[in-house]
Structure formats: structure tokens, C-alpha cells
């Protein structure tokens, strides 16, 4: 469960996010969408504990991320749009590192199936410099999934993946949600959002402009009835 109440983020005098509240229940996939500069990354980074909120509270599995960051972070995973990897650790060493860091007791037995699921089993001893962009993305995702997070946040997760990789990744995300993980997915690929997400959070200039299922959002704006998600997005953010 991810709970966000009245979250705001200021950079000096600039208000990046203002009074944002939403909840992602276990098994839900929330699509975080908005135009460039809307505050999506600031929101995701705050939810991952990277940025300190200027106001508001964020709870992961009931634990306040600001008051009690370590237990909260142990329950979440954040996959940034640019894979952040340690160039001097091999693929399998990355996963061992994460397993130790997150206190995963059976890390060794999880690593094999995870590498197989993400088609990395042939690259166990490869260094990140020897991986393609897509492979790096898969490794970053594997690192995030190893400890079975209760909250999973993905920023543009399909960047750099080939069509097969995209299909597998979508299956992985949907599978994690079915297993009870609360997922937030930020992407400009509206067809991906439409396919995977159970709810939508549309933000513009740091403020929430729509939140709920597509049906709920359309119900509030009857003029958008029957229009595509792309039209919906443009109407809400344009």
C-alpha cells in the first residue's frame, strides 16, 4: 500500500508539486501521467525516498517514509528511467549485493529464476559496460524485484527494450501486481498505461487534474465520453 497525503515539493521558490494526495492499494497499478515538467519525476523520487517532501506525508505499507525511512525503503523498489548500475559489479554480483543490502535470506535461490524471467541468465558474469541499454534496464528491474517489494515504482520502464522484452516486461509488471504489489508506473506511452494500469493519476504543473479509473475520470467529464486515452490526456493537460 502506498499512501500519499498533501505532498508538496518546492525547489527554492519554484513549486514542483502541490498538495498531491492519492493511494495505491495492493494489486493496483497506478499510471502516473502528465506533460514534461508536470512533477512526475519529483513525485516518484519522493516516493522512493530520494527527495525530501517540502510538506505532506508518504507511507509505504503503513510506514512513514520521512519519519522511518529505512524500514520503509526496505519495502519499496524504484526503477529509474536511466538504469543506475555499478559498472564494476557483474550481473550476478549486483543481485547478491542487493540481496545482502535488503536482507533477502534466500537471495541465491531467487537469483536464478529472476535472471531467467528477465532473460539475463546468459549474462550472469557480464559487466554493465557489456550490456545493451535494454539489458541494463532489465538488470535494474531485477535488482528492484529481488526483495519482493510491496511497493514498486517504475519510471518509463520500457525504454530501450525490444518487442519481446516489452511483452515480457509487461507480463512481469502485471504478475507482480497480481501477487499483491502496489505499482506506480510513470510513462508517456499511453497504450502501455491503458493496458496495464487500473487507475490513473494525471498531473499538470505539479497539481492533480484527474485521479481514478478511466470510467471515473470520464464520469466527471462527460464531454470526454468515448474518446481515446490520448484525447483524454490532451484534454486534461492541454
Amino acid at each position: 500500500m502506498i499512501e500519499v497525503e498533501h505532498y508538496s515539493k518546492l525547489y527554492g521558490d519554484f513549486r514542483a508539486v502541490h498538495d498531491l494526495s492519492f493511494t495505491v492499494a495492493p494489486g493496483d497499478v497506478l499510471g502516473l501521467v502528465g506533460p514534461n515538467g508536470a512533477g512526475k519525476t519529483s513525485t516518484l523520487r519522493a516516493l522512493a525516498g530520494i527527495l525530501q517532501p517540502s510538506a505532506g506525508t508518504i507511507r509505504i505499507d503503513g510506514i512513514d517514509l520521512v519519519q522511518d525511512p529505512v524500514p520503509a525503503k526496505r519495502r519499496l523498489a524504484f526503477i529509474p528511467d536511466e538504469p543506475q548500475l555499478f559498472e564494476y559489479l557483474t550481473v550476478v554480483e549486483h543481485l547478491r549485493f542487493m540481496g545482502r543490502l535488503y536482507g533477502v535470506k534466500d537471495a541465491e535461490s531467487r537469483i536464478g529464476p529472476l535472471l531467467e524471467e528477465l532473460e539475463l541468465d546468459g549474462k550472469r558474469d557480464a559487466l554493465p559496460t557489456e550490456l545493451s541499454r535494454g539489458m541494463k534496464q532489465k538488470l535494474a528491474i531485477a535488482c528492484g524485484l529481488l526483495h519482493d517489494p510491496v511497493a514498486l515504482m517504475l519510471d518509463e520502464p520500457l525504454t530501450g527494450l525490444d518487442p519481446v522484452g516489452i511483452r515480457r516486461m509487461k507480463a512481469t509488471i502485471a504478475g507482480r501486481a497480481r501477487a499483491g504489489t502496489a505499482v506506480i508506473l510513470s510513462s508517456h506511452l499511453l497504450h502501455l498505461v491503458e493496458e496495464l494500469c487500473t487507475r490513473l493519476l494525471v498531473i499538470r504543473k505539479g497539481e492533480r487534474v484527474a485521479y481514478g479509473t478511466v470510467h471515473e475520470i470520464v464520469a466527471e467529464r462527460p464531454e470526454l465520453q468515448g474518446r481515446s486515452l490520448e484525447d483524454l490526456f490532451i484534454a486534461l493537460t492541454g
Binding site: 543506475q84 548500475l85 559498472e87 545482502r100 559487466l127
Partner: peptide, 25 residues
Amino acid sequence: KFSGAQMAATRSKKGGVARVFPLPR
């Protein structure tokens, strides 16, 4: 090399990477 992950590890001419002591359990 060091903006994303500081610097790149490289393989030897034989194709191996320098061995690191095991991660303490």
C-alpha cells in the same frame, strides 16, 4: 563512466574480470 557509475571495470586480455573477495554474509 563516473556520472552513472563512476568508472568502468574492464576485463583482462584473457577475458576475466579482477576477482573481488566475497561479499561478507
